[in-house]
Design a protein around this nucleic acid. Structure first.
Lengths: 223, 223
DNA sequence: TCAATTTGATAGTAAAACTATCAAAAAGTA
DNA sequence: TACTTTTTGATAGTTTTACTATCAAATTGA
């Protein structure tokens, strides 16, 4: 079985749908690689244009600016992750098992067993860890929010929060716990790699410790 | 009793010590206000220069670039917060009480009862919440780290982690819990203000709910 | 009061972040 | 196939950002 998964994102994210053309898809694919390589601050449309043998102007036809491209990429990630959550907990009966499954998903890079992802998963995971906060920590968060650009993130968070409430419907902070969990999963990985004194995780690939830490945190809080 | 508190920061943070001159202090004071007002991305040295009736070139004599200025500001905050932690838990005997005291400090804007702060505390708190992540989420994190620019953050985190270990020396994730806690305190406040579906906190001034959430989280994990 | 340091004023450069125009190429349609 | 629309490439241009350099004036400091 070979599936090509396509996620339809909010049209406000782009000027022209990047999934609709070859150039658009190259912008996404090599945009991910180049942001990974240079970091978001040093990344420019001009450099990307050179990389994919097109022009700056052509890229601007797809995305208003590089911040929108970043938002597109992380939004795609959130949407895909929500899909993975739904798929992975489907048919599971026990709340605890479901939560553990979600923790697996949060602490590992994307699995594409469900379809073909034609871009670098490691690079995407790097972007989520290193740059995703910048997608909402900006002055235009309210404006972006008003046109629903963060809906996928909220949906993901809402779904995880719902699992917490299912596990313990007395717990008062399901949403806060869900968002804290998502962010902590990424941040602990970043700290392990760059600022090790801020964490007990032992290296960037120590998914196990992150998982154990978060698992203990969540189930302690919910019990 | 009137004290003027001065915190000596790593010299690599600046080209010329901003605490050593009137112009330097104005750069800090109005820099904080302007970053608060415009957001870090839209903030420039040119705009700051106009604001304080000096020139761009003069500001560049103090700070290599605006990123360094941001790093200076948040580093100052971390240092001051660590000082507040030490001061506030001094003479307390009970670990649990100490931890609660730290939670108070983390969820409220700075208290200057111990000295005079000649800048806008609310603006500084805004910067910490909205921009502080950008101080380390950058490509030069390793380079900055190698010259100890994040030491104050690590020290703060280490001190909080030590309290956790003191409370329960069997707990395996004191450092991770400490960094998660610091970040969550800020992020929950941001979400309450801008993306309310991501939190159970009810508004930007709902320090009480953030406190309760974190308190429950920490003591559940440590018990 | 002389010397050293700091600041202001001005000017300039390179790159980033766009926008505009028009012809060539490609795609869609009849 | 031929024609029409859409997309892309090539080029050029503007404004802003992020700096650096120079030199005289002002301030400070011994």
């Amino acid at each position: 079985m070979e599936l090509k998964l396509s996620i339809r994102l909010n049209e406000k994210l782009f000027l022209r749908d990047p999934e609709s053309s070859d150039l658009g898809r190259r912008i996404l694919k090599y945009g991910i690689e180049l942001i990974h390589k240079l970091g978001f601050e040093a990344f420019t449309f001009k450099k990307l244009a050179e990389e994919i043998h097109t022009t700056e102007a052509s890229i601007y036809r797809y995305f208003e600016n590089k911040h929108r491209l970043l938002l597109y990429i992380v939004t795609w990630y959130w949407s895909y992750l929500e899909y993975q959550v739904v798929f992975n907990i489907n048919n599971l009966l026990d709340s605890e098992t479901k939560i553990r499954r979600v923790l697996d998903l949060l602490t590992h890079e994307l699995d594409d067993s469900l379809g073909t992802l034609d871009f670098d998963k490691k690079a995407l995971y790097y972007i989520v860890i290193n740059e995703s906060n910048k997608a909402y920590l900006s002055k235009d968060v309210d404006e972006n929010n008003s046109v629903h650009l963060f809906k996928p993130y909220k949906d993901l968070c809402g779904r995880i929060a719902a699992l917490f409430s299912e596990y313990n419907n007395q717990y008062l902070y399901s949403r806060s716990l869900a968002s804290t969990l998502i962010e902590a999963a990424h941040l602990q990985s970043f700290f392990a790699q760059h600022l090790p004194r801020l964490t007990d995780v032992k290296g960037k690939d120590d998914h196990q410790t992150i998982h154990s830490f978060l698992e203990h945190l969540v189930f302690s809080a919910l019990k």
